[in-house]
Simulated assay, not measured.
Amino acid sequence: MSSVLRPATPLDASKLGEILYRFEHETPWMPKEHSLAETIAFCDRMIAQGWITVAQDPASGQILGFCAKDGPEICALYLLPEHTGLGVGKQLLDQAKETSPELQLWTFEANHAAQRFYRREGFVETQRTNGHRNSEGLPDIEYRWQVKEMEHAT
């Protein structure tokens, strides 16, 4: 599926908040820490920082997912569950790669699908923690990606 990528606007905050809220509340191993209102406010703050790119269905206009990137750090990459495995996440990640020669992100150890996705996209595990660095207290893994010299030269 090919989606249209665009910068998020303040009007997108509620849709992005719903995507993030659904992940938290539909993922069995994820602590349920935030209300929908808190999640929307969090997305609104990331939008105000200029961090978020949304993936939108060109036909329906539906927001399918988003990527929040602060410099080289991918802070969030979430999709509607019914749109995973269709290339939307790869499209968002490819755009992030185009804007930075190296990227860094964290994912939860329990999120095996995310780990497979990031490894398939060229990310390498650099460290693991016991969860002391995140508010959820869940063990997590840092991944890094770097442009290969040959890719950079072309």
Rank of each mutant, 00 (worst) to 15 (best):
T154A: 01
E33C: 09
R119K: 15
L103I: 13
R128C: 08
G61R: 05
G85Q: 08
T99S: 03
Q146I: 00
C43Y: 04
A8Y: 06
T27D: 15
G17D: 07
S14P: 01
G71K: 11
P31V: 11
A41F: 07
R120Y: 12
T84V: 09
S3E: 04
H152K: 11
Y78C: 04
G17K: 03
V4N: 07
K69Y: 01
T129M: 06
A76N: 15
A114D: 07
Y78G: 01
H25K: 10
E151H: 00
L5S: 02
W29R: 06
I52T: 05
V88M: 03
T129Y: 04
Q146N: 08
E142Y: 05
E33R: 15
D12M: 03
R120F: 09
Q104K: 15
L36D: 05
L103R: 04
M46W: 10
L77A: 04
R6L: 11
S100M: 08
T39S: 13
A153E: 02
W51C: 10
L11K: 01
S135V: 14
N134E: 12
R133N: 13
T84K: 13
I63S: 00
G65A: 12
W106S: 03
A59E: 12
G65H: 08
T9M: 06
A153T: 00
P7M: 07
P81S: 09
T84M: 14
Q104F: 10
R45K: 14
F42A: 12
R120W: 06
H83Q: 12
M150D: 10
L20I: 09
S14W: 04
E38I: 05
L36Y: 11
K32D: 05
A113I: 13
F108G: 03
F66H: 10
R128P: 08
I141Y: 11
F23V: 12
I52H: 08
A48H: 14
L5Y: 04
W145E: 04
V147S: 14
L11I: 00
Q104L: 14
K15E: 12
